[in-house]
Simulated assay, not measured.
Amino acid sequence: MNRTLIEHIVTDVLTRSNSEIEVVLENLFPGRRLVGGKYSLDDNRITLYLGVLEEQCKLLFGSLEPFEEYVRVVLAHELGHAHDPELEYLSERLVRIRGKVSRTRVSLRLEENAWRYADNLVRIENPAVFDTIRGQSLTGYYELLPEYAELIATTA
């Protein structure tokens, strides 16, 4: 991975989004999950985990060929969280809700909001890559919600 190229991608996406959010580039997420990017509401900062993004890209596409676009899409998605007017409200709801299905619905709404923002920002550049990443990201939520059972059954 060419870190300078990644920094240019970050600058380009931030410029296009009119965002002044700090973006930090690290290698690995400090946990057991395969997290490629994270927006911190407390710090108002996005961290991209480039080593994890490479691994995700290889798993999803079988190669690193679309890696630059992969980074662009993940950053746009994290910017979607950062600019989500419902983020604080939905995050507070997540803390109070106990049921798995209810929590999944709120989490899905957070993710869909972020994906809508990303869609408007970068989807047009490579719709196939964008749609593949978004689909993979949302499938886990859909699988847990009964109202999406028919959708999952028809795409399986």
Rank of each mutant, 00 (worst) to 15 (best):
A76V: 02
L121G: 10
R134H: 01
A82P: 00
T15Q: 14
Y49Q: 10
L110G: 10
E20Y: 13
P127L: 07
V35P: 03
Y117P: 02
T132D: 01
A82G: 14
E112H: 09
K58S: 04
G31C: 08
E69G: 14
Q56A: 03
V52I: 11
E54M: 13
K38D: 02
V35M: 03
R109Q: 12
N126D: 11
A82M: 02
G80F: 01
E112G: 07
S40N: 10
R96D: 09
R98E: 08
L79D: 02
G99L: 11
E112I: 07
G80Q: 06
S17K: 06
L14P: 02
L90P: 01
T47D: 03
D84V: 01
V73E: 01
I97A: 14
E92T: 13
T15G: 12
V122N: 05
L50Y: 10
L90M: 12
A76F: 05
G36C: 07
V23L: 10
V101L: 10
V122Q: 05
N44W: 04
L64S: 09
L94G: 12
L41I: 03
E111D: 09
L108M: 11
Q56V: 01
I21L: 12
L34K: 15
K38T: 01
G80L: 04
V73R: 07
E69I: 06
G62Y: 08
E111L: 07
V106A: 12
H81Q: 05
D84C: 10
L28S: 14
N113G: 03
D119Q: 14
T47G: 08
F67G: 09
H81L: 04
T104F: 05
K38N: 11
L53T: 04
V24H: 13
L25D: 01
A118W: 04
I97H: 12
S107C: 02
L14T: 06
S19T: 06
W115E: 02
R72S: 04
E92Q: 15
V95A: 15
L75G: 02
I133Y: 09
E69N: 13
E88D: 11
P66H: 09
R96T: 06
E92N: 15
E22S: 14
E20V: 08
L60D: 00
R16W: 00
K100N: 03
F67A: 08
L48K: 10
